[in-house]
Design a protein around this nucleic acid. Structure first.
Lengths: 266, 266
DNA sequence: TCATGCGGCT
DNA sequence: AGCCGCATGA
């Protein structure tokens, strides 16, 4: 028996908006710790890890660990039927091959339940080692989103370079080149507007903007984003989910190909 | 060496939005006087003339006159990457075949530079004689925009007729006819809401609405628009750019063809 | 003012 | 074909 009651149902709606474009099907894992998901994107290039801790739910009952395979598109369709102020409850009976989403309007005048078939999905749960990063950048998530979008209009890849002074996002395309430098800045009115750089070692890595832009779909979940970089390691783009956990995206850097961008990207 | 610093960068963004649909490629001419452009639209029917006087820039350095050929679509893409509150600096080195747009966020925390390739464009710089006009109408730009859009849903051309009493915009189409009369009106709260008619001689001319609607893309640049008409002369639709100059559109009247609108428009 | 539908761009 | 931004209608 599983019963998770989330007063701020819009959180779950936003989570699905954030990952459904990247991942088609995934197992949601439920344990005493919380509600989590880990999945590769459909082209097996990026990885998404979601955690919603049990403490963040108003009511959290999970008798035994279960893994529920869902089609995220279908799940998203159902969650779109919940109002933004609705309370969402996720329910599943032991051994059932369905999950139920229940939506209660704030006034309790409307109660909806949507039942969705579960699917069997080979889960490839990778252990993700906690790594030390050469540089960690925290900045407003909207600014990061804007930068990724802007650079996409010029080129396909972004070089992210961190020095003590700031973080630079660069691209190059047919019509020209672009460099955007964000300086460290902690003297702002609101802490979420700060750009904070922790750097042990300068680092410069190249990533496909297409994936970065997908990651920024999580922007509504948090005012800030944290970008953790090390050479030879996948970048981690993390959006904290207030009181509950996080959504993290992992993406391997591209090996610099010296201008020779003619071959297709698998 | 060229370096033009424009504190109100959104002006330049709006200028590009105003002309990029009409003109594909154009030379920007830079001299001690200012930053200007003159170009025919891609079907060689309308003409755009832009002037941004040097005094309007916070910093204006132009060592010698140069003409920089730009693809306006690409330029517009880059300017879209500037925030509306950004300060924009246009830079070019002597003899360089690129131009650089630099965007500084108001807080100076973010500095972006975009480099764009220049192109060689045959410039056909027409001397435009200052003419005497039979009638000059000044009215709110939003109202003119609305009229052109509304008439477009009925017909393809607009007849603009000016008498002392007012200006009449008329069209005719398959579904019927439309006449919109704006009376002179100077007794308004704000001067930019006035409709003012200076008339030496009544005039009535016909224009293609398609071009008029393109011209109204400049509406965000000014609260008012000035329409100068003389029989046998191209109409001038002018939007003043505060403190800096203007953008003017010229369009030849159509020769009245007595209902016979079947033949294509070149 | 917010939500939906259409067109342009990637 | 899918996503984003603009425009329109409730």
């Amino acid at each position: 028996m599983l019963e998770l009651r989330l007063v701020q149902g819009s959180l779950l709606k936003k989570v699905l908006e954030a990952i459904k474009d990247l991942v088609n099907d995934a197992n949601f894992d439920c344990s005493a710790t919380g509600f989590s998901l880990q999945a590769m994107d459909s082209s097996h290039v990026a990885l998404v890890a979601l955690l919603l801790r049990s403490e963040g739910f108003e009511h959290y009952r999970c008798d035994r660990n279960i893994s529920m395979g869902m089609n995220l598109n279908n799940m998203s369709k159902m969650l779109k039927c919940a109002g933004n102020d609705d309370i969402i409850t996720i329910k599943a009976d032991d051994g059932s091959d369905t999950v139920t989403f229940m939506f209660e309007s704030p006034t309790q005048d409307k109660i909806a339940d949507f039942e969705m078939k579960l699917m069997d999905i080979d889960s490839e749960h990778l252990g993700i080692p906690e790594a030390e990063y050469h540089a960690i950048v925290r900045m407003p998530s909207s600014e990061f989103q804007r930068i990724c979008k802007d650079l996409s209009s010029i080129g396909d890849t972004v070089v992210i370079s961190v020095t003590k002074e700031g973080v630079k996002f660069s691209t190059r395309g047919d019509i020209g080149t672009a460099n955007i430098v964000c300086r460290q800045n902690t003297t702002v009115d609101k802490p979420e507007e700060a750009t904070v750089i922790e750097m042990n070692e300068p680092v410069s890595l190249t990533f496909a903007l297409r994936y970065m832009n997908s990651f920024t779909k999580a922007t509504p979940l948090s005012n800030t984003v944290t970008i953790s970089l090390s050479s030879e390691l996948p970048v981690v783009v993390e959006y904290k989910i207030a009181e509950m956990g996080y959504i993290r995206f992992y993406l391997a850097p591209k090996i610099e190909e010296d201008e020779d961008e003619t071959k297709p990207q698998a």
